[in-house]
Computed example of a mutant assay.
Amino acid sequence: MHINLSGKVAIVSGSTAGIGLGIAQGLAGAGARVVIIGRQQGKVDEAIASVLATHPAANVRGLVADLGTAAGAETLFKAEPHADILVNNLGIYNDVDFFDTPDEEWARFYEVNVISGVRLARHYTPQMVERGWGRVLFVSSESGIATPADMINYGVTKSANLAVSHGLAKRLAGTGVTVNSILPGPTFTDGLEGMLKDAIAASGRSAREEADAFVKVARPTSIIQRAADVREVANLAVYLASPLSSATTGAALRVDGGVVDSLAI
């Protein structure tokens, strides 16, 4: 199977690290012109360098913008008015107890994790419809269908991603524009490593070993019994962004290592 995205412009939100950067690298490797976006110039520059280190001939450019705000979205629209592929990856998470989470934190999570993707999809999909082709991808989470007790506000926003994606797919029926969600499970990223830094220091294990141990304890239903690699998640995203996925839309596809114990979604 050969995926060729030459000539396609791909915008990936939240793409200076973790899954977003992995997806940007995968899209660049398939020939897409990739736009990397982050809030800090240094992080954007590092991400571009990372892509070029893997794919020296990649066409990649960067933009500094806070896409968790309307002003940041407008900055993106002015700098990059056109997209063939939109990956709504931007997201935040923490492990705060339900009773310790104030209204302001609920609102912040919803603004960043949900509304940011709504804004971008609302802007870019009409152009895709005019051209008769486009790919929109929302990065949700297994927490969107199996809400963790210690991350309820996060899980709610990831459920909302699924609803927006499925509804927008139906709204764009017959246009040649597909809309899908992917649901990663625990993935070995800088974010997960940071969350486990105290456990790493206490155990003396490597970050990778601690991440895999975390999965076995916190997500015992995992079938692979380890954290996924970023590339394993990115591979699914690249396929969904390609012409090969033309009959897949309105779908929520899990790349969670089997954490969710279900025959369906």
Rank of each mutant, 00 (worst) to 15 (best):
T189D: 07
I265V: 15
V96G: 03
A211C: 10
N161W: 08
G204S: 02
A247G: 05
Q41T: 11
A24R: 10
F77H: 12
I11E: 04
K43P: 00
A53R: 11
G194V: 06
F188C: 10
F99I: 07
G20Y: 15
G185H: 01
L21H: 05
L183R: 03
L192Y: 01
W133N: 05
V238D: 01
I23D: 10
D212P: 11
V139T: 14
A202N: 12
F77L: 11
R205H: 11
V118H: 09
L168N: 03
W106T: 14
G174N: 12
N153Q: 14
N88E: 02
N153G: 01
L236S: 02
L76Q: 06
I115R: 07
Q127N: 04
R122Y: 06
V177M: 05
I223M: 14
Q40A: 14
G132R: 01
F77V: 12
A237P: 03
G185M: 01
K170N: 15
A17I: 00
V136K: 09
T189V: 14
S262D: 14
A241Q: 08
A10L: 12
V259D: 05
I92A: 02
G117Q: 13
G42P: 09
S141H: 05
A83N: 14
N59W: 02
F188G: 11
S206C: 04
R39P: 07
L236D: 03
E209K: 10
L137Y: 13
K8C: 12
P56D: 08
D45Y: 03
S15D: 09
I3F: 02
L240S: 10
A211W: 01
K197M: 12
G62F: 04
V139N: 09
G26D: 05
A241F: 05
L120G: 15
L76W: 06
S262L: 12
N153A: 15
K43V: 00
G62E: 08
V260K: 04
A234K: 01
I48Y: 06
Y154Q: 07
T249G: 08
V217G: 07
E111P: 08
Q127P: 00
I92R: 04
G31P: 00
W133E: 11
A47C: 10
G62P: 09
T69I: 04
S116R: 06
A47F: 11
L244I: 00
E74Y: 02
A160M: 05
I224H: 10
R61K: 14
V9Q: 13
V114Y: 05
E80G: 03
T101R: 03
A227Q: 05
G91Y: 07
A32N: 04
I200P: 01
V34C: 03
R254T: 07
L86V: 14
V129A: 13
L90Q: 10
M128A: 06
L67H: 12
V9R: 15
A241G: 03
D229C: 00
T147F: 07
D66Q: 14
A207F: 09
R119E: 13
P56W: 10
G7T: 04
A247R: 12
G91L: 10
E104W: 03
V12H: 04
V87L: 10
V260A: 12
V34R: 12
E142T: 02
N153L: 02
D150A: 10
A53Q: 13
I19A: 00
E232S: 07
R205C: 02
A207E: 12
G204R: 04
L240Y: 07
A32L: 06
D45R: 13
L236E: 03
